[in-house]
């Protein structure tokens, strides 16, 4: 259990945070993901499959939370445990977090976790085309928010 937790908890937590934008809910989701993982007693053929499963469950739980009405609309970003080293850093981070949840999740998975589009599609349960479209729209929104000098 400890091995699994140590291996995935940062990725799971950060993805959950990208969705719900506050520490408490991200921690709840992280806990639930691992509880599901331990309860499922699943065996995976490879680490990558296990990673995808963890990410997928994280996304599902986060989406469930976001579907609740208190999350359906804008929820402010909790910045208490965020450290910004420059104004630009803060601006970029806030711009990403201001994106609609579906966009910031694909941005997170693509740029932070480094997943290819095909794997993101598996994780978020959308088609590759839909993910590509979401990335396109997310980049467009970021450029609109941050100006054309934004480098993606």
């Amino acid at each position: 259990m400890e091995r699994i937790y140590d291996k995935y908890h940062e990725s799971v937590y950060r993805l959950a945070f990208a969705y719900c934008k506050n520490r408490a809910d991200a921690e709840d989701i992280t806990s639930d993901v691992f509880l599901k993982r331990f309860a499922s007693n699943k065996t995976f053929d490879s680490d990558s499959y296990e990673t995808a499963w963890m990410m997928r469950v994280t996304v599902n739980l986060a989406k469930d939370l976001l579907r609740s009405f208190r999350y359906r609309f804008s929820v402010p970003l909790e910045t208490a445990n965020l450290i910004f080293e420059s104004p630009e850093e803060s601006e970029v981070y806030r711009a990403v977090m201001d994106l609609p949840a579906k966009y910031r999740s694909v941005i997170h998975l693509y740029y932070y976790e480094g997943y290819p589009v095909a794997e993101i599609a598996q994780i978020v349960g959308r088609s590759e085309t839909a993910v590509q479209t979401q990335l396109y729209r997310a980049r467009k929104l970021l450029k609109k928010a941050l100006g054309e000098e934004m480098e993606l």
Partner: peptide
């Protein structure tokens, strides 16, 4: 402004 700045902040969470 670079998207990597988002990654750096996320790293620190």
């Amino acid at each position: 402004k670079k998207i990597q700045q988002y990654c750096k902040v996320t790293d620190r969470i």
